[in-house]
Structure formats: C-alpha cells, structure tokens
C-alpha cells in the first residue's frame, strides 16, 4: 500500500516510486495552458518551511494550487505568535482547523517523523536537515527518464559535500532501487567511509571518476563549510573538485550534468565550463529541467499521498 508520509525513500517500494514518476508524466503531459486539475479540490495543505527555500517551496505551493487545493503557510515567523506552544501543539491546532496535509522542511533530522507518527494526516518532506530530500531525488529520476535513459545500469558520479547532503542520502535509495550505479567523489571531510552505502563506489579524485559517469551530479557547497574551516576555501575546493573546461573533456561524450541548485558558479562548476556547454551542447545541462520537473513530481506526490486519502 501507499505510505502515509514521504519523509525518506528508505522504505518506499520501487512500485510506489514508479507510480509517482508515472503520475508526474501524466501531469506534465496534460499541463497545457488553461488546464485545471481538481485532484485536491477543497483540500488545505500547510506549507511549513523552517529553513530558507525558494525553489522547493514555490514548487510545492504551485503544485497544490494546480491541483485545486489551498495552501496555508505556517512558518517560524508566524510560530512566534504561538509563544510557549511547541511545534507539535501548533500542528495539532492546525489539523483541528482543517489542514489535510503538511509539507515540512526543518533542519533537525527526525523531528518531522516524530510529529508525523503522532497524527493521521500525511507529512511530505520538503527537505530535512542532512537527512533526506525525497522529492528532489524523485524529480532527478524523472528528469533522467524523460531523456529516454534507462536508469538500470546508468552510472551517476556524484561530486561534492556528500556528508551534509540530504539529496545524496535520498539518492542512496532512489538510484539503487532503479538499478543505477553511484560513485561518490569528495574530499575526505565530506566523504567518511562509514557514510558510503554497500554497492556504492567512492573516490577522492575527480579525474579518476569522471570518465565513468553517464551523469555527473554536482552538489552544492555551502559557504558555511569554509567558514567552519572544513575546507581551506571554496577556491581550493574548486581547484580539486570543480568541474571546469579541462575536466569536461574527461567526460563521456554525451554525459549529462545535474545539480539540485542553487549553483555556485565558479565552485561546483566553472563559468567557462557552463558557457562552453551552453554554446556547444546545451542539452547536456539538465539543471533547468530538474527545476521544472519538480513541479510535476510534487503534484504526483500530493496526488498519491493526499488525494488518495480523501473520503
């Protein structure tokens, strides 16, 4: 059966993920101008982001609206009005005034799950600390499939701050469920051996791994990592792990470039590399496709988890 919540991809069966991708394809196909869906008609969805977000939050809000539902924002600034009330209490209050589902982002792993277990309505993660970001992984899969790629046997080389990446952790389950191979590349500080799941390769040398990738998946490096002294500087990171013009030549001829955004140009990928790709092979950069497809994947998730539960 369908899960109640979508907080992690760890225990989501392949059939459910496939169902989401199929529904997303349906919505994308039918999303012509003026199209109207009534999947969530009369449903109130709380969008509660406790960490900054532009694309994920907008994408979720738009997804709800396109499905005919109402969004209600419940954010930390509003929460201060409920002084002395815990998040749990506020959530119960919102449920009793008619919220049918929560879309939640929070920095503390497990916090959302703890609350979700206490109530009956669906909770959908919009990214949870360094834990999981399930819709991001699903929209990545959707984007690759849309290119007509067979995920089975595909090799994804993932580069960057694996340690702090919730996207990487969701992909540990998503890619392997679809039979894709994963190679992780990062400096040791971002790639402790205990983090690497069974069946996944890892390396500290970008040059060694790039030639193997059908997809190069770049992860964002937060400026905060430099401030905390985890790496000497973003520049030094880029010197060893940034994708630049020279390293582009190491890639397979048609290898694709993905990034969950927002991109730090000059860190994860150099300006020249982007310019060259845009000029010569713009189809190899999937970053805008990922953003666009996020909408449909989130519509599909809402359809499956929220509409499916409606009496």
């Amino acid at each position: 059966m369908f899960p109640k919540d979508l907080l992690s991809l760890e225990n989501i069966p392949l059939e459910v993920m496939e169902d989401i991708l199929d529904r997303a394809a349906y919505y994308k196909h039918h999303d012509v101008e003026g199209a109207f869906f009534s999947t969530l008609k009369g449903k109130n969805i709380a969008v509660s982001f406790w960490e900054p977000s532009t694309r994920t939050r907008s994408s979720f809000e738009l997804a709800v609206q396109k499905l005919g539902g109402n969004t209600i924002r419940y954010s930390p600034e509003m929460a201060s009005e409920y002084k002395g009330e815990t998040i749990e209490d506020t959530i119960r209050t919102l449920i009793s005034i008619g919220i049918n589902a929560f879309i939640f982002r929070h920095s503390s792993p497990g916090l959302v799950g703890r609350i979700a277990r206490m109530v009956d309505i669906p909770f959908i993660s919009g990214g949870e600390g360094c834990y999981q970001h399930p819709t991001q992984a699903l929209l990545d899969l959707f984007t690759l499939r849309e290119r007509g790629l067979n995920l089975h046997g595909l090799r994804v080389v993932m580069v960057g701050d694996i340690l702090h990446s919730r996207v990487a952790r969701s992909h540990f389950y998503a890619l392997s469920a679809f039979g894709a191979g994963l190679t992780l590349v990062a400096p040791p500080v971002f790639l402790p051996p205990e983090l690497v799941p069974p069946g996944v390769d890892s390396s500290h040398r970008l040059e060694d791994t790039l030639p193997r990738g059908d997809v190069v998946y770049l992860l964002r490096i937060q400026g905060e990592r430099q401030e905390k002294g985890l790496i000497p500087s973003l520049r030094e990171y880029a010197a060893l792990f940034g994708l630049n013009e020279v390293r582009l030549l190491l890639l397979k001829e048609n290898a694709l470039i993905m990034h969950p955004g927002p991109v730090n140009i000059g860190v994860e990928i150099s300006y020249d590399a982007i310019k060259m790709l845009h000029k010569e092979q713009p189809g190899r950069i999937l970053i805008q496709d990922q953003v666009k497809n996020g909408l449909y994947v989130r519509m599909a998730v809402l359809d499956l988890l929220v509409a499916g539960k409606v009496n």
């Binding site: 792993p109 497990g110 360094c130 999981q132 340690l163 919730r166 952790r169 540990f172 205990e194 983090l195």
Partner: peptide
C-alpha cells in the same frame, strides 16, 4: 557515533 547508522540519518557525529 560516526558510524553507518548515524551518517545515514544525517546526524552530526
């Protein structure tokens, strides 16, 4: 602990 379980849960170690 800095082990498989803690890292998988995205918790600082």
């Amino acid at each position: 602990h800095a082990g498989t379980c803690g890292y998988r849960q995205g918790l600082p170690v």
